[in-house]
Design a protein around this nucleic acid. Structure first.
Lengths: 211, 211, 211, 211
DNA sequence: CATGAATGAGTATTCATTCAT
DNA sequence: AATGAATGAATACTCATTCAT
């Protein structure tokens, strides 16, 4: 009857997982919101966990694409590449704000499935960041610094607004889902790159696209 | 049989909420792990939500105490006060790493209870940070900056290692529960304060206690 | 794709009904094992019960044929007829060992369908046995005996090895699906006929075919 | 509220398993018939399979007791011991006719649980029968015979009336749950023992108790 | 003939909670 | 202070079946 059952299931699931968490969301809730029969979820995704894995995969495959786009610019300079990556990721997360929050939260659990699915993606992500940072240090664009600690800070800055969206909204009156947030917050991270990461010199943000 | 049922319930609950999430943990799991009868939990905490609220309250009351200790140093300078606060909070979170992760995660949900309980604490926290930052800007210790965006970055840096502890462990090989992490990571945040937040001048970390 | 969907469905169904029971087997199990679409089963057999009835009918029509073959020999003597029937039935059951076990088990349930389908066959079977036994008693081949109790014993001896095949295999190390079992076990039942059923005299097994 | 929830659950379960089979019976059916809450079944028996295991254990422990009682008479003669065992087992099965039918049927499935639970009991049972038969052959009470095939026939005769109770009722008009059946059918099996199993001589049934 | 999509009723099981003791 | 028994509602999931294509 419905044209796009699978799609509407995912849509409903993302919304509910985002607001109530994975465990806190029942398959019936999802089916009701999607306007489909609960059995249909098993039909398309095997079981509730299959739906979760589908979301994880969807999120991370696109996430890695954004990473790769920035990484492709590495020959134009580590700083340019990194800044472009920051913009890409902020944009991606801002445009998929519900999915992002849900994934970022679920990642903090100790479930075996999460570990398995994510180990791949995390290793890849770390590889990209490491390459960019090491290149920058080699070319003296960046000062020498502990790579893990830099990655930790960068990821902190990138993820927190999307994970704690409610806090950011209500307490700080910042709206991460609005388009100008990407622009504004990119500049904040650029400043962190310029001041904390880069070797002291004149900075060049002109090459960063789509800002 | 057990000397301190209540305490052992909380202990078990924090461990399980931390690893499996609040919704993912059943009262029987907790009771089994604590070695008490499930009905006992209702006896002490009314119901499952009461146990959650107890954890939130316990966490935030001590969290605010740490904030206040740093705030009390405001007259010795905004930078000193802020840096001391950073050390205190890192220490507190590192020493209560399971509770911290669980609370930080649960805070990202849209439950009404979470909103209610936390509005108070978040407002207070924001008040402290705002006071310190504004004082620093007034005294020219800090450059002028958007207060909300600075708070956002500061909180990002403070919380992320404890929330994403598994990622930080496995991927970055950083161990936030070990004592030297506080020391090392404090210096990273100090650097952020010095380079991003402070007006360009010579920095003074000598006054920060217990580092 | 498959050449003979219907046949492969029955084959799969018999195997699964045999090992897991009718209620314990799902239409999807059968379809999966047969390599066909579940909807196909409804196409051929109306519904799951139709498949069951098909199996029952197939089993009993051939079963009755074997009975009739033995009954046709009645004029050559009750003992010969009975012994031939024993051989025929043992052979038939041994060659359809999965179907046999499943049918014999399902017959022990109180389902209405089972009652209906089987009343016909049971009555016919009883008729044959009764005729043979009464003839034998009249001709003094058999001693006088309660017919129902003799039928009960005869059916016990005929069915049990095929119904409790696992027990018979594992505990007694007898293999009812191997061809020499028919030969060996026939002799056991012949002995029962000779000693328990027949009037004391010299026995003649020469006329029994295909042993 | 109810005085004997556990007992009434077992009672209802045995009745329903008997008529509809284990897989064909739902936990709700049982709970409804027993007048208890479905969750109570999980409370007492862990899950549906736990209830099944409970029934198996209950059946076989008492079954073995009857076997042992007969076995204890072995020094009075193999024939006496065997005949007493027959009476005991017929009595036990006749008095627990529903449980017996259900167990005998379920034993014919290939479930792993059934195999595990029963391997013990079957081995013990085989041990008793083997000892009795071998003793009888040694003392020339019984003629030489293949022990497994004798056990097979004996068990056929013992179990079939209780397993195929409906057939036995409707077609043969024999009522295995009535007390005189034990008496009558014992004599049939005695005759089998006397004529098929025993060496030709005069028989003595006087020593068999409670007949 | 055959299938993928879809469904409503049903499955066993788990849940937080209550309450008499 | 603590517990075993019990419950009703909810859980994820499976079922046989239907139907348009």
């Amino acid at each position: 009857m419905r044209k796009n059952s699978k799609e509407s299931i995912v849509e409903a699931a993302v919304f509910l997982f985002n607001t109530k968490g994975f465990s806190g969301t029942s398959i019936r809730d999802i089916a009701a919101k999607a306007g489909v029969n609960p059995a249909n979820i098993a039909y398309y995704f095997q079981n509730k966990n299959g739906l979760l894995e589908y979301c994880f995969t969807a999120y991370f495959e696109n996430y890695l694409k954004e990473l790769e786009k920035g990484y492709a610019l590495l020959d134009e300079g580590a700083e340019v590449s990194l800044k472009q990556t920051v913009v890409n990721l902020l944009k991606y997360q801002s445009q998929n704000i519900q999915l992002t929050r849900f994934i970022l939260r679920e990642m903090t659990l100790d479930s075996q499935m999460v570990r398995e699915v994510m180990s791949t993606y995390h290793v890849k992500e770390r590889y990209y960041f490491k390459k960019v940072l090491e290149r920058g240090m080699r070319t003296k664009e960046f000062r020498n610094h502990s790579v893990p600690y830099i990655i930790l800070q960068l990821k902190s800055l990138l993820n927190t607004p999307f994970l704690n969206i409610h806090y950011v909204n209500e307490v700080l009156h910042i709206l991460p889902h609005e388009s100008y947030f990407v622009e504004k917050y990119s500049r904040e991270i650029f400043q962190w790159i310029d001041l904390v990461l880069s070797a002291p010199r004149s900075f060049d943000n002109r090459r960063v696209l789509s800002l």
